[in-house]
Design a protein around this nucleic acid. Structure first.
Length: 264
DNA sequence: ATGGTAGCGTAGCTA
């Protein structure tokens, strides 16, 4: 089973790139974030034509939005309203093969890493605390589950281009890393991609639009993640970070697709 | 220390 996660930053604008990804990688399941459209204008027909007939989409106007597009049958879905909001940052689906899949878009958190003066950062920290508490209260680690998405945190030193220079930058501050690690530990989630690439090696999934040349400066961050519960750790067979997609014409997303293969 | 780009939707917010 091949699972893909991608912050597509507008599914309508980048539908051609999504179809290219499908051509080149043929994922069984695609999880998108920042679809940025209400469900009525989600380009479902083009995806159905390519075999993604099992879908769960949660969109809103302009912001956020998540979707699960699957060639494998689904057996129900679930929505959790984090922080008392209905802002389309999470959707879960149970696959007919017994695996539960969670697609998450954690708040970016604004620019100032201080919850006292920045409501967006406070929201991000609360979201993380709620995730940490939700897993052990609602699930057991022996259930086969996959958690993917734009978690908007690069937890490891080599998940960013400069650990020292990003310690004060939202996405890599110690408080965020600590809280994301607590989420991970709350259900013994395994960082699937770091099973393949050692923590000593740089790995990014996002490069800012604001760089003059993202490829040359290479100031990236690993914000997009794939986690699995322990029963699936032994099923991991491979991964891909499609760095080249950051340069896809005419209009690339600032995030690239991350793919993981499991032998089910 | 600052500003740099992008998407939505058509001003200003979010990233």
């Amino acid at each position: 089973m091949r699972v893909c996660t991608w912050n597509i930053n507008s599914v309508r604008l980048r539908l051609p790139l999504l179809l290219r990804l499908i051509e080149e990688e043929a994922p069984d399941v695609i999880c998108l974030q920042e679809t940025k459209t209400v469900n009525d204008t989600f380009p479902l027909a083009e995806l159905r034509d390519r075999g993604y007939v099992h879908t769960v989409i949660r969109g809103m106007k302009s912001y956020n939005g998540v979707a699960i597009l699957s060639r494998l049958p689904l057996d129900g879905h679930e929505v959790v309203h984090w922080c008392g909001r209905e802002d389309c940052r999470h959707v879960a689906a149970r696959l007919a093969n017994g695996i539960e899949l969670h697609n998450l878009y954690i708040p970016a958190g604004g620019d100032i890493p201080d919850p006292a003066v920045n409501d967006k950062f406070a929201h991000k920290l609360q979201f993380l605390d709620e995730l940490r508490d939700w897993w052990p209260a609602n699930r057991k680690a022996d259930r086969p589950m996959i958690l993917v998405g734009d978690l908007n945190i690069a937890p490891l030193e080599n998940d960013v281009w400069s650990h020292k220079q990003l310690l004060d930058v939202v996405s890599h501050t110690p408080i965020e890393v600590e809280k994301l690690t607590a989420v991970q530990d709350s259900l013994s989630w395994v960082d699937a991609v770091r099973r393949f690439i050692p923590e000593t090696e740089k790995l990014y999934t996002w490069w800012s639009y604001r760089a003059a040349d993202w490829d040359v400066s290479d100031r990236g961050r690993r914000l997009d993640h794939v986690w699995v519960t322990p029963p699936l750790a032994g099923a991991l067979r491979g991964f891909k970070v499609r760095r080249d997609a950051r340069g896809w014409e005419p209009k690339p997303s600032d995030h690239v697709p991350v793919l993981v293969d499991l032998e089910i």
